[in-house]
Structure formats: structure tokens, C-alpha cells
Design a protein around this nucleic acid. Structure first.
Lengths: 191, 191
DNA sequence: TGACATTCGTTGCTTACACAACAGATGTTG
DNA sequence: CAACATCTGTTGTGTAAGCAACGAATGTCA
């Protein structure tokens, strides 16, 4: 395999700046609502010029997108689900990961805003679809993976969203054991 | 008073880079001896280019100098001795600060190197002299402060060095109470 | 001794960032 | 309504940092 400089060998200044901005945004989210955070707030805390912010993100919504994306990918990588293939066991862990992530988001934020949530939904579903497509393609199947991956993506996100919104959440294990077969049945052909 | 941009309003990039280098050096000192640390080691850990290092420090000895200077100044500021005037009480606290700083240096470093120590001595005495001169001048005296400040500087450093090298160090309070009058007598006219 | 490897300190060139200033949008307040 | 303030997104220009390459000094090993 040749070199894959998709994100690895990046100018140190770029990595540093992005990291500073994301960290500052993380800190600010812990103490203010997303709506009330200005670009200036972020860049001040990051120690970065405001103009530099716009060299990295289109606006603060793009930042939120990158933020959620980063956090969710970390959750995936923590469970080593990023470099594996489809099995019912991995699928179960993936569902657990999404449930926990959304649950954390709901308890972490001061208020669950609609704008915030719908943006997160798109971001997370994109990553889910990308990951599931990878899993299915690695089975070496000749069948198109788009349809099954799409169905599974929406199902998983829907389950996790439902779980996170429950007033009294049941034990996660129990919830997932019950839901898993309904998702797995669509992917049986890849097992 | 007009603006005093001696170190405050510095280009954020400069502050950032210096901070990264100093922090990396601090980390490295905790696990390697000063002699075995290369400039490359520092810049690698700091995530900074080697050429950039030389834009900030002449060599690794200049870095060591800046490092000790920073640490010592922090020790001074922690005790709010940086913005006050001469009193026997403040003098006592200053002596305590130097004693503790040198003691920490001796136990913190893997080995107390001669090169390391003599460089530290010059650095610390410069800061001491600068601080004492400020204290004495704030009394509004018309007498030249250079001689008294010099004597006090050398005396304080000598005391602290002596204390730090003791095999069995007595309680610091006791040591300083005994030594204080000998230094204070030279500064009585400013009390 | 000579061949090889590190580390150093410096250089020319490119790229990312800082900064000030701008016009436009939005939102107070009297 | 006008006057004011704040935030946005963009631009031109100066400067710091990245990078590759260099010669020189030092050290290591055969």
C-alpha cells in the first residue's frame, strides 16, 4: 500500500489550530448554550485570530458539525469498531455506542435544542452509513451495500434517539438485546 | 503611565510556540538528563519545527535559561512578591522562596550537574537583583540601591544554595529565622 | 586512518496565521 | 425613526512557522 495522506501528514500549524478551536468550543459548550456562543468567544478562548477561524470552518455550524463528528468517531474508535467487519456482536456494540453517545449528549447539554439535534443527526448518520458500508463491503459480497446500509443506519439512529429520549431509560443491555434482532435480520446475508 | 508592551501584547503565535517548547522541555527534563536532550527531542515533542526553535532560542542552554527563569518567576508570583515593596516580612518570604526553589531543583533533577547549576545561579541572581532593586526604589529613597541590592542578592542566593546542599536540612522556618537578621541589617535604611 | 551517522546552526522558499479594516446583517434603545 | 452596538464574513498586507537542504562539528565503528 502506498501512502494515504488523507489526514495524517498535515501541516502542524493546521492540526494545532483546529485542535485549539475544537478544544475551546468543547470548553465553552460546557458552560454556555450553543446559540449564545459567538465565533469571537471561540477564537478568544482558543487564542486564535477570528479570520483564521474562517479559514477552517465556514461558520459556527460547521464547527459544531466537526465537533460532533470528532466526538462520535472517538466513541467508535474507543470500541475498535472502526477497523473491523460485520458480525452481530460488532453490530450490537455499535448500537450501544450510538445509544450512549446520544444519551450523553442529552445529559451534557444545558438544553437539547432542535437545531443542535438535527445537525447532529445528519452528521452521525453519515458516519454510521460510511462505517456500515465498509463493514458490508469487507464481506466480499457482490450485492450492493447501499440499501442495507441505509436501512441499518436509520434503524440504529432511530433506536438510539428513542432510547436517549426515554424519561426512564431501561438498562442499555436489555434494550439492545431486544432491538438487535430487528436490525440484524436485514444484514443476515452478510454474516 | 502609558502602555508597557514589554511582554504582554505579543503575537499569539510567538506565545504559543514558546509555551509549547518550554512545556516539552519540562516534560523531557522529568525523564532524561539535560545533557542527553537534543534540540530535535524538544521540537519533536513540542510539535514545532527545529528551525523555529532557533528563531526563539540561541541553543539549548538559552532554553534552559528561559526555563529556569520562568519557573523561578512563577515561584515569586505565587507568593505575590513581584508587586510589593521592602519589608522584613517580604524579605523573609523571598528567602524562603529561593530556598525552596533550589531545594526542589536538587531533588527534582536526576543529577545536579555543575553546568546546570552555574547557569541557574546566574539566572536566578539576575532576577533577585532586579526584584530587590525595585523594592528598594519604591521606598522613594535617594540613596543608590545598587550596592545594597547586590549584597542582598548574593547573600540570599548563598544562603539558599547552602541550605539546598545540606545533607540533613533543618526546618526551613528555623533556618530562615536565624539567617534573616544578617541580610536585613544591610537593608535597614529602607525599612 | 577513513567511512558512516548524529547533531548542530543556518538558509531560501512556501504556507498559515495575525491584524486591522471593511461592508452588511441584526438587534437594541431612546 | 435614527443612532448605536454587536456579530458576521471577507479582504489586503505583514510576519511567524513549516520544510528541505546545506556545510560543519562531533562521535562511532571497522
Amino acid at each position: 500500500m502506498s501512502s494515504k495522506p488523507k489526514e495524517e501528514r498535515l501541516d502542524p500549524r493546521v492540526k494545532r489550530t483546529r485542535s485549539l478551536i475544537l478544544q475551546a468550543f468543547d470548553d465553552l459548550l460546557a458552560q454556555k448554550e450553543f446559540e449564545t456562543i459567538t465565533v469571537q468567544d471561540v477564537t478568544d478562548k482558543a487564542g486564535v485570530n477570528r479570520a483564521t477561524f474562517y479559514a477552517h470552518f465556514a461558520d459556527k455550524y460547521a464547527l459544531l458539525d466537526a465537533f460532533i463528528s470528532q466526538k462520535f468517531r472517538q466513541e467508535i474508535e474507543k470500541r475498535t469498531l472502526n477497523a473491523c467487519h460485520y458480525t452481530p456482536e460488532n453490530l450490537k456494540n455499535l448500537i450501544i455506542a450510538v445509544c450512549e453517545f446520544l444519551s450523553k449528549m442529552h445529559s451534557g447539554c444545558v438544553q437539547p435544542h432542535q437545531q443542535f439535534e438535527s445537525l447532529a443527526e445528519g452528521t452521525i448518520k453519515n458516519i454510521l452509513f460510511e462505517l456500515l458500508s465498509l463493514w458490508l463491503k469487507q464481506t466480499g459480497t457482490k450485492i450492493s451495500t447501499d440499501i442495507p446500509a441505509t436501512v441499518a443506519t436509520w434503524a440504529i439512529y432511530g433506536l438510539a434517539s428513542h432510547y436517549a429520549h426515554l424519561k426512564k431509560r431501561p438498562p442499555l443491555e436489555k434494550f439492545v438485546d431486544e432491538a438487535l434482532p430487528l436490525v440484524a435480520v436485514n444484514l443476515e446475508q452478510f454474516a
